[in-house]
């Protein structure tokens, strides 16, 4: 049988450890605290977006000395995309990251990632962009059909992406065939609305 002395020592050790852990924690700068679960899907989607670049061809005349990714609105993708911009290049061009809150502040970019709020205002965004060579990326039900080039969805607990080929064509973007094989192709509701 375990002696009371042993139990006391065990209690004392556990108590000391708890206290030490809490004290240690109190000295950790809270500025570095992040939501524990949030980064996972955001990082995965950011990695998807970075991978999309190698499967899509932008028109040559749209090329500048840099590749620009903009996030419109408050999106968890902003952090990991900014991190990717700091580390990676596209065809030896640096990736420039921008984060804007208002449509009016938007400047030409190669990829535009919409927050949940701006996804609801998708029509306003596509009208503003017109035929600019910009890949619009969203994460909302039905957004691909309504003008986004790529829209993230979840199937059986895994990330899938819908592609609106007509929307890409309007933006003069050419997707690779092997890219389309992986995608869920959706019809373009926007073109159906045309007379």
């Amino acid at each position: 049988m375990t002696s009371p002395f042993t139990i006391r020592r065990l209690r004392s050790a556990v108590g000391t450890l708890l206290l030490a852990a809490i004290l240690l924690g109190s000295f950790v700068p809270t500025g570095f605290a992040v939501e524990k679960d949030a980064p996972m899907p955001a990082k995965v989607m950011a990695a998807f977006i970075y991978k999309f670049i190698s499967y899509i061809q932008w028109p040559e005349e749209a090329g500048t000395g840099e590749f620009k990714i903009t996030v419109l609105g408050d999106s968890l993708l902003a952090g990991p995309l900014e991190e990717i911009a700091g580390r990676k290049t596209v065809a030896q061009k640096p990736i420039v990251f921008a984060h804007v809150e208002k449509l009016a502040d938007l400047t030409p970019c190669d990829i535009l990632v919409l927050s949940g709020h701006w996804s609801e205002q998708l029509a306003q965004v596509t009208d503003s962009l017109g035929d600019a060579p910009t890949l619009i990326v969203t994460h909302c039900p039905g957004c691909a059909g309504n003008g986004a080039g790529i829209n993230f969805v979840t199937r059986e607990g895994r990330i899938r992406f819908e592609v609106n080929v007509a929307a890409l064509q309007r933006a003069q973007l050419v997707p690779a065939a092997r890219f389309l094989k992986l995608a869920i192709i959706v019809d373009d509701e926007k073109s159906k609305e045309q007379p």
């Binding site: 990082k43 995965v44 950011a46 990330i159 899938r160």
Partner: peptide
């Protein structure tokens, strides 16, 4: 839970196999 560096090393097929919800 993947770190960003690991994710960037994956191709699209691998990214599509990451479970993001129930587990």
């Amino acid at each position: 839970e993947k770190e960003l560096d690991d994710l960037l090393e994956m191709d699209l097929n691998e990214l599509m196999e990451i479970e993001v919800t129930t587990a």
